[in-house]
Design a protein around this nucleic acid. Structure first.
Lengths: 126, 126
DNA sequence: CAGCATCCTTCAAGATACTG
DNA sequence: CAGTATCTTGAAGGATGCTG
């Protein structure tokens, strides 16, 4: 739902085709790992590529790489390369990205509460 | 990104496989029209199927129908049928759904601000 | 009016292999 | 270590037609 939804929204914006305010936000955070990436960077600070890779057990290089690239394109995170061998790259949230973190945190809190509820109702195991 | 991502998350929850708090929230609001549906129902009140259809110029019956069904499954919105001819069906947010509306509103506000910024920077037309 | 069934398109994400 | 390139696939979403 990413590359093209994102492109799509951008085009709609360029055409002044609204109803998009929320779609824009959604288009930025939609993507299997983006919210979680943002949460870790926003709450815990900068991470290296391999750190992020470890956080998501089964993500492929390419997928993680793409998600990061899109977040960079959208101005949400930054990429800092240390000229070393072996290479070291750190990702961090930008100023713009920081304004998005509260939303991610609310999503986190909501999800946590919802999971507790579901457990109390016996719908999911504890 | 919906039906199966959603199923996937549910299974992960059942297995106690975490990292999911935010994924749960995202899995519920991901879907091309869900955030916008939620916003309209949450902010403006109940809507009929055809009202919603009119809000999204190019949505197909099936797609809208699916999005609504999934939101109902997740307990976010309710469906009320009036026994009339022709049929009348109203959708509204549930109590649970109401707790999600603030997040949607924040997404709306963030998107609006971001769009203004982009306009000021001359990146998109006004 | 509301919505289901069927078929079809397209695109996000995975697998795998290679590079500075 | 941190990527890119290519190829494949599964599933979200669209189009169309039928029904109570």
């Amino acid at each position: 739902m990413c590359e093209t939804l994102r492109e799509n929204i951008k085009q709609k914006l360029e055409n002044g085709d609204y109803n998009c305010e929320k779609e824009l936000t959604l288009s930025i955070i939609s993507g299997k790992y983006k919210v979680v990436i943002l949460w870790h960077l926003g709450v815990e600070g900068p991470h290296r590529f391999s750190d992020l890779e470890r956080l998501f057990n089964h993500v492929s290089h390419k997928t993680l790489s793409n998600q990061l690239k899109e977040l960079i394109d959208d101005g949400i995170i930054s990429r800092k390369v240390y000229p070393e061998m072996p290479p070291k790259v750190e990702y961090d949230v930008t100023e713009l990205g920081k304004t998005l973190v509260p939303i991610v945190e609310m999503m986190y809190d909501w999800g946590k509460k919802r999971i507790s509820q579901l457990k109390e109702e016996g719908i999911i195991g504890s």
